[in-house]
Design a protein around this nucleic acid. Structure first.
Lengths: 234, 234
DNA sequence: CAGTGGTCTAGACCACTAG
DNA sequence: TAGTGGTCTAGACCACTGA
């Protein structure tokens, strides 16, 4: 392996280099040959080898530095992609019939922690939306959302009454940056009732604080029905 | 914006195209100009424009098809990277003093769900390891691990007694593929005792089934101390 | 300062697929 | 089948950074 005879496409080179890493031939922390050298070895060009190595570096398998050369990552922290879907779409894709019920929507003072997360003065009025998403008529996700009014001009009751604000926001005020936290909480009495579950049931809570460029946009708190699992793969 | 005057580096082109998308000038679902056309517009070449567009496609903002052209993704499902760290390193990086205590390590019959997930015959003997990770002497994560013996030849008691198996596996039997599930569970009496928390406390459970190429490697169940949060950003 | 990766070019051919 | 993106080449210059 890793011999000559013109392996000339970048995916093959990527595969071969990765095999050298995963088989232990190229140990973590050690330097691998320069681009030019690999290009000769594979009967290819520097551009093509570079493409393969860049891809492996993006995936976290390699560390590259000018003049320092390319080294096998000491700690290949694999990144698992966790997607941030449109709620209704996600339910449909999972093979269920989606449903949406608006519970509350009003401009009101935000809790201190919310306004703080959005870098807004305490007591500022935000649009607070509470809505329940169903999968096959069973409560699936509870959405609590606080939105900065200035950022959502044009969003009105006619939007949120019938369809998730998700979908309006996507087209009209897309976020450019967000912080996401995932935690496990015990459902309060009120929340448990919504999910038709015993009080204290464990629920997955995702909190997302989002910005459009430098301007804070809103906070989303998404409570999942007990038993729900996030899935991903690497 | 999006005018001529030679914007010739791919990051600038990427930025400009992304701005066109996020400002709503290029609506979700609509086609954007061909590579050659953009290359002329930016005073650049097809390769460079291609680099920018490929990057945006990888990030989920664009859909590209040969002959079909490039369209703005109808549903920009942003991918949040969730990393799969070395446990001890993660604790150190979070600014805590790491600790490790092995609770159990024995070759024994695996539960039916575990052997099924690994495509092993029911009742097969697997190496079962139970260990507790500490952060500043407080229990932080509980690791349950089942490993297929054939895949970990060379791993012995001297390894797992003193240091997390994590670290041996990384160098000697790196996974190439994995399925990950994240859920919220209520701690059983036994687990709650380990975390020094009331029984039934909500805990984040991560289950990872991993393979090396086509061969099943093992199952990891990682229970997090109540209150722990996974964080990521996009 | 010298060596490495990062990027751009101008051109070519190929692979897929919509019409 | 024609048009689009996907890839490769051969070469050049630049930007960073270790020795």
């Amino acid at each position: 392996m890793t011999k000559d005879d013109a392996v000339t496409d970048w995916k093959a080179i990527r595969r071969d280099v990765l095999a050298n890493i995963q088989s232990g031939q190229w140990q973590p922390g050690s330097k691998i040959p320069r681009e030019i050298e690999l290009a000769e070895r594979y009967g290819s060009t520097r551009s093509t080898v570079g493409r393969a190595l860049r891809d492996l570096a993006d995936a976290g398998f390699l560390d590259r530095k000018r003049k320092g050369g390319t080294t096998v990552a000491a700690n290949p922290m694999r990144k698992a992609p966790l997607d941030v879907p449109i709620l209704r779409d996600a339910i449909t894709k999972a093979g269920h019939r989606p449903g949406y019920r608006l519970l509350h929507a009003k401009l009101q003072c935000a809790p201190a922690d919310i306004s703080a997360a959005l870098a807004q003065p305490p007591g500022v009025k935000l649009l607070y939306i509470r809505a329940l998403y169903f999968a096959d008529d069973r409560p699936h996700q509870l959405e609590l959302r606080w939105l900065v009014p200035e950022m959502i001009r044009g969003l009105g009751p006619d939007h949120w009454a019938t369809s998730p604000v998700d979908e309006w926001l996507l087209c009209n005020a897309p976020l450019t940056r967000a912080q996401i936290e995932i935690e496990s909480i015990a459902l309060s009495d009120a929340l448990a009732r919504l999910f038709e579950q015993p009080s204290g049931s464990p629920s997955l809570l995702i909190t997302r604080v989002s910005w459009k460029d430098a301007a804070p946009l809103g906070v989303l708190r998404l409570y999942h029905a007990p038993g729900h699992r996030l899935r991903t793969a690497i």
